[in-house]
Design a protein around this nucleic acid. Structure first.
Length: 254
DNA sequence: AAGACTGACAACCGCACCTTT
DNA sequence: AAAAGGTGCGGTTGTCAGTCT
């Protein structure tokens, strides 16, 4: 089946997104969700293709995205998973909540691949001598082939990919999704009246649940969903929230 | 000071898979 | 069962800021 690229249509904008476009997209998704990416730009009044909107939302605008530097632990996880899974960035991203496949892919190509290469060219006595560990503190550890030293989930993935059984890999993916969803609270009335500090930060899921169950956002819910945001980000999201039809007090009053 | 180079990251493209008709 | 359309994924490119010469 041959399909014309969706952006070939005349008049569709390409390239970097402007803050105005971001605002339109976020505001639209907060209000209506994203059931149909292809139809979304037209309905939202954006001169972009659906694919571009989806990418922008997933890689940049989604509120549950962790911005900023990767920790050493994150980097080690990526290296280990890459060792097991290869370039399956979305599967790797599923293991790192808040990180996107694109971000991980970029980090791999710009930092980790290079660093791993440097590490692998180090003499064996540097790699193997425990006393030299401090000297190479910033270097990622080479993943062990021993299953004893690999987290159970990793050895599981390893054994599955070794057999090349795609179905089982997909099952693991699905399990990861289930794990993520289990971290979310049940969204009912008590959820919205209880500002528990253990609430998750997956705003997309929270918003989806909220949209389907409650008629209008309240600023308390945004605060709950975004309790990890700094003041500037909070203000940004609050403005969008109000534009999307939300109701509530100003941030300063909370 | 200015042009060249490099690294980081956002965004695009094409393909494959999945779902719907 | 097959065609059509939508979505997700991975590879690649484009852009921009910082550094070097």
């Amino acid at each position: 089946m041959v399909r014309a690229p969706c952006c070939d249509k005349m008049g569709l904008k390409k390239g970097p997104w402007t803050p105005e476009e971001d605002q339109i997209l976020v505001s639209y998704i907060l209000k209506h969700g994203h059931e149909n990416w292809r139809a979304l730009p037209k309905q939202a009044g954006l001169l972009r293709c659906g694919k571009s909107c989806r990418l922008r939302w997933i890689n940049y605008l989604r509120p549950d995205i962790k911005r900023g530097n990767f920790t050493l632990e994150d980097e080690e996880t990526i290296i280990q998973l890459h060792e097991k899974l290869g370039n399956r960035w979305s599967t790797i991203a599923a293991k790192l909540p808040g990180r996107t496949d694109n971000e991980i892919k970029n980090v791999w190509h710009t930092h980790l691949k290079k660093r791993l290469k440097q590490y692998q060219t180090k003499p064996d006595y540097v790699k193997n001598n425990p006393k030299s560990k401090n000297k190479i503190k910033s270097e990622p550890s080479i993943p062990s082939q021993s299953s004893d030293e690999v987290p159970s989930s990793l050895s599981e993935v390893s054994s599955i990919t070794d057999t090349g059984d795609q179905k089982e890999v997909d099952n693991i993916k699905a399990d990861n999704m289930v794990d993520s969803l289990q971290c979310l609270p049940k969204i009912d009335e008590s959820f919205w009246s209880d500002n528990s500090s253990t609430l998750p930060l997956n705003f997309e899921a929270v918003a989806d649940g909220y949209r389907s169950q409650v008629p209008m956002f309240s600023v308390d819910h945004i605060m709950v969903a975004h309790k990890n945001l700094d003041d500037d980000s909070m203000e940004f999201w609050y403005e969008l929230f109000i534009k999307a039809g939300g109701e509530g007090d100003s941030i300063e009053q909370l």
